[in-house]
Structure formats: C-alpha cells, structure tokens
Nucleic acid binder design. Structure first.
Lengths: 224, 224
DNA sequence: GGTCACTATTGAACATGTTCAGAAATGAGG
DNA sequence: CCTCATTTCTGAACATGTTCAATAGTGACC
C-alpha cells in the first residue's frame, strides 16, 4: 500500500501521499464520507492540489481497485496450486474475490451507487477500469488453464470474461446480503458451483453447444 | 398523468403542479438534469416549497414509479386475456414492462445509480417503493393464476416476487444494452422464456423440488 | 547565480439536494 | 370583520465534487 516513500520527486511524493490517505479513508470511512476536502486537509494541501494530481475523486477509486485486485491475485494464486479440479479452482477465485471485498461491505451501497452507471469511470466494465478488471479476468483464465478437465476450445476466449461478469453479479448479491457473515452469499456460491459441477459434462453434448454459444455471445457483449 | 386540476384546495393544486412538472421533466431531461431549482422555477414557487410538498427529490421519483407501473398494468392486462399459456403470459408481463421503460433508456444510467443502493428510498426493493412494486408483483401473480398449466402450490407464494426480481435483473441488462432497439435484451428474454418452457415440465420431478425450493428461498430474502 | 518555461499549488466560484428559521397566507371560531 | 393557531411559502445557508485564473515554486540552461 504505502507507495515507496523517500526516493521520487516532490511531486511524486505529494501524489503518493494523497493516494495513501485517500485509500486509507476509503477503507475507514467509505466513499461518501471520503471527501476531497478531507483528503486535502489530512494531506496538508489544498483542494486544488488533490484535483491536480487526481483529476477526480473516482481516479482515486481506481487506485483502490488496483490495490484490491492485486491482493485478490496474491490471495488466489497460492490456493490455485492446491487443486486441478476446474470447479474447485473457480471456487478459489470467487471466494478470494469476495474475501477482498468483505472489509468494504459496510460501505458497499455507496460504492455500488457510484460504480453501477455504465457512464461512470469507476464502472468495473469501463475502459478506465480495464487494468484492475484484467487482473480478475486473468485469474479466471489461469483457473481454467490449469485445470485437469479441458473445455471445448471454442469457449476459451469468452469464458473468463463471462465468469468475471458472474463475479460482479455475485458481488451485487453480496451488497444486498444482510445475513451474518454473508452466509447467504456463500450458500449461493456453493450451490451455483455444485450445479456447475453437475452440468459440466453436458457441455460436451452437441445439442447444448449452440444455445450455450448464443448465451455466451450475448453476455460477452455486455460492457460499459 | 395530470392530477385532477380544478377541484381540490390551493395546497393540493400546488402539490399537483409540482408533481406534474417534475414527472414531465424526468421524462424530458432525466434524473440529473431535473433539479429542484428547475422544478421550483417552472412551477413558479421557491425551492423550499417543493421540499415542503415533497420531502426529497426521490419522493418525486416515487410518483414517477407509480405512474409507470400503473401504465404497465394497463398495458399488460388486455394482453393477458389473449393466452392461457403460462410462459406466454409471463412474456407479456416482461415485455410490457420493458416497453414502459423504453422512453427512459437515455437516462437509465442516472436512474440506476440513484436507485441501486439498498439504502436508497427509490430502490425498487425498498419499503418506500412497495406500492409500485406490488403492482408488478400482482401482475406476475395474475399471469400465473390465469394460466392453464398449474404449478405446484408450494411455489405460488414466492414465485411472483422472484419473477419481479428477474424483471429487475432484465432491466439491469437493458440499461447496459446499447444495441439498436434493445434488440439484445429482447433476444435474452426470448431465449430465457424458451428455456423456461422447455424446463417447466421438469419442475414436477421430485428430485428437482428441493434445489428449486432452496434457490427460491435464497432469492425471496433479497430486499433493500 | 540569474532567467524563464514549466510544474505545482492555491482558494474562490459554481451547481447540486437538503435544512431551517422566519414570514406570509389561510381559515375556523368568535 | 377580528384573532390567532395552523398551514404554506420563502430564500439564505450548508456541504459536496469540480473548475480555473492567479500565484508560487522548481530546475535546466547560460
């Protein structure tokens, strides 16, 4: 998190300071309560300075996204070593992803509202979010690639993105989940994975290829 | 739309005036551009007056919801007379629902952002939205009740709400749909309905009852 | 060390939804 | 037609993210 203090120019140090203070504040106070004026005040600079280094508040959220997804990757990779079962590997990516979000659950409605618009720069499907998004897509890609059971090659291209979309939908459910320890989200994920495991052999049936292909095509086009 | 002018006290007329101007503005300018000051100005009153009659901007959105869902009902009911096939009847409710939203597609991201938070008063799942929400749930209930094929009675209670949630998810897809005439949303709906029609006979199989029941239970608890 | 283009910083200004103390209007009871 | 409590209305105030003209600082080149 703390961005290599010491070296770097004055400007880079100011930028890093603002970034670190903003990220800490997002964690502690959420999106709404993290105001530009508060960040500026804690960093000992003026409002204009924060907006000079980060053109908007949402640019700071992108820094947060990157941080969260890098930790997602760091948490998932070692666990992916432990199994070569496709469904289990997907479960690892989903579960470690949710685990990263958990500290933010209190503030999830605020972030959701700011991010859900297709026009928002912090929409996970926006071009501005591509760097952090690709980390997650990459994880799903690796989960598939390292699995013992191979899927038809025609699915390889779109499937990771579709799974990332599934992860976003799961996160949407998670935002609305008021159960203790997000127990209902866990149950939904477990049941979904069990269903997937049961129906996976069917993918190889010729009759199912076409409807699946069509469904995947529809999903693949979803973007902000 | 226009709220019985003429009769009614001065206060009621002011309230109706503000309401009508707000609803027209939502349609023409969307959520963001419809500012309280603009409404007040067009109504020839002060900012404080609009907030006296409608405690918040979102209270005016509730008026819009009600208007839209009443038209949804008016559009769906006659078409429900034309078929007693369950899946076709559900299709009527879905399609007439989307048709009501269509004029707002330009502004859908704004409305989505304002409504998606579980803490928002205009969240369709909030208690504040219950009146308009129940119109939609009622439509699904009637679609089921008037169908020739009867479902197991145990589903009757939760299914209409679950279908309403499905409609919300479809609307989410619709918000992100950039295709000409929302052609992709139509296709998704058609394919979903076809799939439903094919799998409906399976509902009567004992083995599927429990997983279905569990799924429905998870879904039924989703609320804002 | 002086010059000067570029980089970095400042804080006032703007529009937004909402609040609220106070002013004005209303209308029921005499 | 008064009285006066209640209802209705007003507009200034607040906090928010963002913009921008003006100022200050920095550092490369002579």
């Amino acid at each position: 998190m703390s961005s290599s203090v010491g070296t770097a120019t004055k400007s880079e140090r100011t930028r890093a300071l603002i970034r670190d203070i903003a990220l800490r504040s997002f964690r502690e106070r959420g999106y709404d309560q993290t105001t530009i004026r508060l960040i500026a005040s804690e960093a000992g600079v003026s409002v204009g300075t924060t907006n000079y280094h980060f053109a908007s508040k949402n640019d700071l959220v992108q820094e947060l996204y990157l941080d969260v997804q890098q930790q997602h990757r760091a948490a998932a990779l070692p666990l992916l070593e432990t199994s070569d079962d496709l469904v289990e590997r997907l479960g690892v990516v989903f579960r470690t992803g949710l685990a990263q979000l958990e500290p933010y659950h209190r503030f999830a409605p605020e972030f959701l509202s700011a991010a859900v618009s297709p026009r928002s720069s912090i929409n996970p499907l926006s071009s501005d979010s591509s760097e952090s998004r690709e980390i997650v897509v990459g994880l799903f890609r690796e989960a598939i690639a390292g699995a013992a059971d191979k899927l038809p090659a025609e699915f390889d291209e779109d499937l990771p993105s579709a799974l990332m979309l599934g992860h976003l939908l799961l996160a949407l459910f998670w935002v609305y989940d008021t159960s203790e320890g997000r127990e209902r989200t866990s149950r939904l994920l477990d049941r979904g994975l069990r269903l997937l495991k049961l129906s996976l052999p069917l993918v190889r049936l010729r009759v199912l290829r076409k409807p699946l292909r069509e469904l995947l095509d529809l999903i693949a086009e979803v973007q902000a």
